Amino acid sequence: MLTPVTPGPAVVACNTCKLSADQREDSEGRRGGALLVAALQAVKASDARYADIAVQEMPCLFACTEFCTIHLRAPGKISYVLGRFAPDEDAARAILDYAVRYATSEHGRVPFRDWPQGVKGHFITRAPPEGFVAE
């Protein structure tokens, strides 16, 4: 049921998420999550700044009241679930830009002033790493 991945900063995208609040798939039958995964992979491959951020995918993050959700995580850091993204290059770039700042932060907290505009308003939850609670 679990597949091992290399530890480190990662954007884990739900590949089964619906396309939007009102639509499950696009006109070609593709889910929003699958489209977002493809956009994340394409943007990551296009820019060396994202080399240290893994893009991983899995079915269902259980954020089904939202759409196009991702889980941002790294060992020893607060993790976040974000959603309500358009499954496109602009959203993927904003997610990866935030992930780079997140990866270099001490505990997973990125000052609001450093957030890319494209992630503002997309946070759903945060969770502390195992063995900790957030202040």
Rank of each mutant, 00 (worst) to 15 (best):
D114H: 11
H107F: 11
D88T: 07
S79Q: 11
M1R: 14
P128C: 04
E106P: 00
I78E: 15
Q117G: 12
A42V: 06
A10P: 08
S27R: 13
T16K: 14
P59F: 07
G32M: 06
D26K: 03
D90C: 14
T104V: 09
L72I: 13
R30M: 06
G76M: 00
T65G: 08
S105T: 03
A86C: 03
P111L: 09
A21W: 11
I70C: 14
L35Y: 03
C14H: 04
V119S: 14
V100I: 05
A51M: 02
P59G: 06
A86M: 09
A91Y: 04
Y50G: 11
L19Y: 06
V12N: 05
F62H: 13
V81I: 13
C17I: 10
P9R: 01
P4D: 07
R84G: 09
L96P: 05
T69A: 11
C60P: 09
G76Y: 00
K77F: 00
A21T: 10
A51H: 07
P59Y: 08
G8R: 00
A48K: 10
Y98M: 13
S46T: 07
E135L: 13
E66D: 08
A51W: 02
E25A: 07
Y80E: 14
C14K: 03
A45I: 03
G8C: 01
A127C: 10
K18W: 07
P9W: 01
D52Q: 11
H71Y: 11
F85I: 04
P129H: 02
W115D: 14
L40G: 04
Q56A: 11
A34N: 06
C68W: 01
A134I: 10
G76H: 00
W115M: 15
A51F: 02
F112R: 13
P4L: 10
P128V: 03
G32L: 06
L19Q: 04
Y98K: 06
R31A: 15
W115V: 08
F62L: 13
A34Q: 15
G29Q: 05
S27E: 12
T69W: 01
